[in-house]
């Protein structure tokens, strides 16, 4: 139980120049298992009991414990950049957004959960733009601030996670999230046979637990084994970059670039910056023009949950 709550915090020390392909062959679930075994793991979910929690902010304690605990290397600071000029809502593919679909298939996200959701937003001049919206991974996260039991928490790597084994289902985090990025298990979501025996992990919320909140987990476990998150992998236009602000490097699977320069050169912005949430997800303005989309081509294919369609009698709900 204790080991399972531990997270892998890989130092980026030797990863800059060398690819991490050593782990590339290991499947995600295998990796989860061995990280579950506790190898080189550093506790991130605060395990402090109430009294010791009284001594201070649990989050900062966890952070200092983590950084000091392994003085060897630096922590990753995961981040995402989404180039909206390359997002056409998969209009050109004639399919629902591939990012959403890959995320649903990869995490067995149940209907109506779209951990990364492609919103179509009106822009000036009568056109629209598509905005793929994962959890914004706020650094001043309103959800983390209000959680009464620390079930949702920020990792030192900057990822906001939910521990569904701790969540009491009060849903104040959903009220607090200004991006509508949290999903509640109103009933027992269907569990596909292949997810039945997966060991639960905060970084890979499978299988779903009734009465708890779920959301995009930012896939740092995949990044640690040298893989892009499902959404970034699946994007046909390579519009989604995943990166490490510590090393100032990001990739969309096709190119590698320097985050700071990329952001500055392209008028990057964040959603609802005025709220002071400090997201880790950046956007480059656009409406799919780089991939030939006209802003006046409205609409996209509705999201599907292909794996649920294969399960007979699956009980789902709407948003």
């Amino acid at each position: 139980m204790l080991n399972r709550r531990k997270l892998q915090a890989t130092p980026s020390g030797d990863a800059g120049g060398k690819p991490e392909e050593k782990k590339g062959g290991v499947s995600r679930r295998d990796f989860l298992k061995w990280s579950g075994a506790g190898a080189a793991a550093v506790a991130v979910v605060p395990q402090f009991r109430f009294v010791s929690r009284l001594l201070g902010n649990g989050r900062s304690e966890a952070e200092s414990a983590n950084t000091n605990g392994n003085g060897k290397g630096r922590l990753r600071r995961w981040s995402m950049i989404i180039d909206l000029s390359r997002c056409d809502g998969c209009q050109s593919q004639g399919t629902p957004p591939k990012c959403t679909e890959a995320c649903i298939e990869g995490h067995y996200a149940s209907e109506p959960m779209e951990w990364i959701q492609v919103y179509e937003k009106e822009i000036h001049g009568g056109g629209t733009q598509f905005i793929p919206t994962p959890c914004q991974q706020c650094q001043n996260a309103p959800c983390v601030n209000v959680c009464p039991v620390g079930a949702t928490f920020s990792t030192p790597e900057g990822v906001v996670l939910i521990d569904q084994e701790r969540c009491i289902g009060c849903r104040i985090c959903m009220a607090a999230c200004p991006y509508d990025r949290r999903f509640f298990n109103w009933g027992q979501a269907p569990i596909p046979p292949q997810a039945q025996f997966v060991e639960y992990h905060v970084e890979h919320q499978v299988p779903a637990k009734k009465g708890t909140v779920m959301k995009c987990d930012f896939c740092p476990d995949m990044a640690r084994v040298g893989k892009l998150p499902y959404c970034a992998q699946a994007c046909p236009n390579s519009a989604i970059y995943y990166g490490d602000l510590e090393e100032d490097i990001a990739t969309n699977g096709a190119e590698v670039l320097k985050i700071s320069k990329f952001l500055s050169d392209n008028q990057a912005y964040q959603q609802k910056e005025d709220l002071g949430t400090h997201p880790r997800v950046y956007y480059l303005p656009g409406h799919g023009e780089a991939v030939g989309r006209s802003p006046y081509t409205h609409g996209r294919k509705p999201t599907r949950w292909p794996w649920i369609e294969k399960i007979k009698g699956a009980k789902t709900w709407s948003r």
């Binding site: 800059g16 893989k227 490097i249 990001a250 990739t251 699977g253 590698v256 670039l257 320097k258 320069k261």
Partner: peptide, 15 residues
């Protein structure tokens, strides 16, 4: 600067 990140290798444009 040649670099590799998440199994993608390439030259990072520095400026």
């Amino acid at each position: 600067s040649p670099a590799s990140f998440l199994s993608t290798s390439g030259e990072v444009f520095l400026g």
